[in-house]
């Protein structure tokens, strides 16, 4: 389809623009590829080692508390297309966004809520991840 558009475009586009547009990282297809069949994916600002936003950091810290250190993290600050694309994908206006087995789980508030009420342990179990918090004996 893009080729057709290009043919009728009065301005000849540069090859690089064409490549970016055809393989937009913000497209549904691209994001499907990032989240489907993946256990746990986080779209965040910064990286797990150096989050650039308090909300993104909170999500990483919560996952770490549950002993989850292996997950795909995508830094949306490095990719404006992805930043907007993922918001459209989930119809959710903010970053961070957490996906489990292709399903949108929630943002920071929901992760904090699920962490506090214990639901996160159950959600992780569904993804075959045993929360490390289960191995800590309860304090009396």
């Amino acid at each position: 389809m893009f080729r057709i558009l290009q043919r009728f475009s009065p301005v000849k586009r540069r090859a690089t623009t064409l490549i970016c547009a055809r393989y937009s990282t913000g497209s549904k297809e691209h994001i499907d590829g990032l989240v489907k069949e993946k256990n746990l994916v986080v779209f965040m600002k910064g990286t797990p080692d150096a989050p650039r936003c308090g909300f993104s950091n909170a999500v990483v810290q919560i996952l770490n508390m549950h002993g989850v250190e292996k997950f795909d993290a995508h830094n949306v600050l490095e990719d404006e297309d992805l930043r907007q694309g993922v918001k459209d994908y989930s119809n959710w206006p903010t970053i961070p966004q957490v996906y489990m087995q292709g399903e949108f789980l929630g943002g920071c508030d929901i992760m904090i809520e699920m962490h506090k009420n214990g639901e996160l342990i159950e959600e992780l179990k569904k993804a075959g991840i045993r929360s490390a918090l289960l191995d800590i004996p309860e304090e009396k």
Binding site: K45, G46, P51, R52, C53, G54, F55, S56, N57, A58, L77, C108
Partner: peptide, 10 residues
């Protein structure tokens, strides 16, 4: 809410 880590507008 959690404290800022400086990423606004970046």
């Amino acid at each position: 809410s959690p404290n800022c880590r400086g990423g606004f507008g970046k």
